[in-house]
């Protein structure tokens, strides 16, 4: 069982959370001007990293807020949790 650090509520059991897929995916500004391949890439293709992965989680049974988590997909270790709109810790703008 994982313990996830909600940016508001602190460390809570994984049972209280819902997974929401990869984080920091930006919707293209002008979908009309995209090719089908580009649009499909935005909709369906994910990085599927082996290692540190930025992903969205929702504290569904707690404060019901979405936030981002850095998790190592090999060890399942949670490295950081940060609020939406913030950059992952350690990254440069």
């Amino acid at each position: 069982m994982l313990q996830i650090e909600c940016p508001w509520c602190g460390a809570r059991d994984q049972e209280e959370f819902q997974y929401g897929g990869e984080a920091h995916i930006v919707r293209p500004e002008n979908p009309d001007s995209l090719t089908d391949a580009h649009w499909a890439d935005y909709l369906f293709n994910r990085t599927n990293v082996k290692g540190v992965h930025a992903e969205q989680w929702c504290h569904a049974a707690g404060c019901r807020r979405w936030f981002n988590v850095l998790r190592d997909t090999m060890s399942y270790k949670i490295l950081a949790a940060y609020r939406p709109g913030e950059q992952p810790p350690g990254s440069e703008e």
């Binding site: 509520c9 809570r12 049972e15 209280e16 049974a61 707690g62 404060c63």
Partner: peptide, 9 residues
């Protein structure tokens, strides 16, 4: 605290 008891919010 909001949490779950016996699968209930």
């Amino acid at each position: 605290a909001q949490t779950v008891i016996a699968y209930t919010n």
